[in-house]
Design a protein around this nucleic acid. Structure first.
Length: 502
RNA sequence: GUCCCCAUCGUCUAGUCGGCCCAGGACACCGGCCUUUCACGCCGUCAACGGCGGUUCAAAUCCGCCUGGGGACGCCA
């Protein structure tokens, strides 16, 4: 439920919407109008790990918003944390984005390659009096915070150097000179109106004493420089937003529209962590999930369009306009993801399914599978698997030789009785006479035998199944036989007849 | 501690500015049908508006408080 409040009577001193426009009472409409002008979104991960599903979802939302409004979707790597950033993670994130089908516009931007840009703007803030040099040491600042805490206040910098007019110097950083009173208000695309008193904020550092810009500074400069109009990011950034808006104001930049999507929780409602298993997109890829299923699932987790559950990419682009996003955190439910995945597996053209399954078949040890065989296997088992891995796992009994087939003891004991073995012996010659060994003729022959002997399928099917695949599973019997071929099928029947129960 | 955000079935959610909601859909679960296994498919059952006040003829929908979650308070990003 969106908590969109009406305009209050107290006029906010700082307003965070674009172009300083006053929003209409209906912020949906207001937002829509501004979307129409131009939409440039971005995804800006830091390469300190693989792309995780939370990040993937914000990327998907950003991408969809841009595509829906025929705008642009930009990509920026926030690699300023030199210690934790790794090229392999950048590569991995890019690979996951491509796998998900999220194409971006323009060049990839690396933050580390544009350090000069940030300082230019810090200097500008210094010149215009929106920022000042601060010579306080870490210890002094910590002491201030402690004092504030003791008084029950929010720990913050007390503005010691604010009016000292210090110049540059060893160990000095630059702080933003924040307004002393008023509220920062902005209309969030998913949370509605958010208001924060500037007294909750302090004069944040925008340039460290080593000359590098801080995160909030860099983000604002980058987003403005890249022309970003809509910032969709994780929930954990809401408290950064007022600070960033202050920087936008000080710089005289138009403030973009923000949309803070809530985080994704584990099945137990706790923050997603290692012990929840797969968190990275790449892991789902390895588990045999289809990108379309993951995208569909992730989008649906936090966004809705009435009762619709299944969306094609085109539908999503058509329907996703930045509204109807859920402000509350959601739990990750693998079962529903798998249901969606199974759905997409069933509806893919076989050729496509086979192409996607091949790597998993190879992983399972089946290399050089002829395309027709692979497709036949996919067609036979697609309804019985929720993931590509599971699908490939079904191939085993189909690709062995009769002599190597493993039999389930219970199935043998229950179904291969002296009586049914007689049926099987008879069937060996029945099937042996089928010249066109395809599913249909095989089925006809089986039916003729069953009918001709006053039997029912139920009388012979379990035995036949056990004989052919070794256990009570698998696909349609005639299909299995067609796949195995006459010789192999008969070999299996012959071997089954010789089986005795221990 | 302070501030910000959140709160409908077990889970994801619908619920367009209060009435058509003794709350709808989907996943899961359970039961049934179909059936040459298992699935798929189809049908059905179970199941929720966190609590308390207020506004109103009428509240899941508006307001307040409480409770419970989460996030943020760095010269990290």
């Amino acid at each position: 439920m969106r908590s969109r409040q009406k305009l209050g009577t107290n006029k906010p001193v700082f307003y965070g919407a674009r172009d300083n426009a006053v929003p209409s009472e209906n912020s949906h409409l207001y937002a829509k109008k501004s979307f129409r002008m131009s939409v440039i979104t971005r995804f800006a991960p830091s390469p300190t790990g693989h792309l995780h599903i939370g990040g993937a979802r914000t990327a998907i939302f950003s991408w969809l918003l841009a595509r829906h409004f025929k705008g642009q979707f930009r990509f920026r790597i926030e690699d300023t944390d030199l210690l934790r950033s790794k090229q392999e993670y950048t590569d991995s994130i890019l690979a996951s984005m491509k796998w998900l089908g999220l194409t971006w516009d323009g060049e990839l931007t690396y933050q580390t390659k544009r350090m000069g840009l940030y300082n230019k703007y810090v200097d500008k803030l210094l010149e215009t009096g929106h920022a000042y040099w601060c010579g306080c040491t870490e210890e002094e600042v910590n002491a201030m915070r402690e004092r504030a805490k003791v008084r029950g206040l929010k720990p913050r910098y007390d503005g010691h150097c604010r009016n000292l007019n210090l110049g540059p110097g060893e160990g000095r950083c630059v702080r933003l000179k924040c307004p002393l009173e008023g509220k920062v208000v902005f209309d969030d695309m998913v949370k509605g109106r958010i208001s924060v008193d500037v007294r909750e904020l302090d004069d944040m550092v925008i340039r460290r004493s080593d000359g590098t810009p801080t995160y909030n500074m860099a983000v604002v400069v980058d987003d403005h420089d890249m022309g970003i109009t809509h910032v969709i990011r994780g929930d954990d950034h809401v408290s950064n937003t007022p600070r960033q808006i202050l920087i936008y104001q000080a710089l005289g930049f138009p403030v973009p529209t923000f949309g803070h999507v809530p985080m994704i929780l584990g099945p137990d409602g706790a923050k997603l962590s290692k012990r929840h298993g797969a968190r990275a997109v790449i892991e789902y890829q390895k588990d045999g999930l289809l990108p379309q299923a993951l995208v569909n699932y992730l989008v649906r987790l936090g966004w809705s369009h009435g009762d619709q559950e299944i969306f094609s990419l085109d539908e999503l682009i058509e329907l996703f306009d930045g509204t109807h996003m859920n402000p509350s955190a959601a739990r990750f439910d693998v079962r529903k993801l798998e249901w969606l995945n199974a759905h997409y597996m069933r509806n893919l053209p076989v050729e496509e399914l086979a192409r996607l399954t091949r790597p998993f078949a190879e992983e399972a040890g089946y290399r050089d599978l002829p395309e027709p065989k692979l497709q036949a296997l996919c067609a036979m088992f697609r309804d019985r698997a929720k993931t590509l891995i599971q699908l490939a796992a079904n191939f085993a009994p189909m690709l062995k030789k009769a002599a190597d087939l493993e039999y389930d003891e219970k199935a043998v004991a229950k179904n291969l009785t002296p009586q049914t073995k007689e049926y099987l012996s008879a069937l060996i010659s029945v099937f042996g006479d089928v010249s066109d060994f395809r599913s249909e003729p095989i089925n006809d022959a089986l039916k003729a035998y069953v009918d001709g002997h006053g039997l029912k399928f139920k009388d012979v099917a379990p035995a036949l199944r056990t004989a052919l695949v070794g256990f009570m599973g698998g696909s349609h019997l005639p299909d299995i036989m067609e796949f195995l071929g006459k010789e192999e099928s008969l070999d299996r029947l012959k071997r089954a007849i010789t089986l005795t129960i221990a």
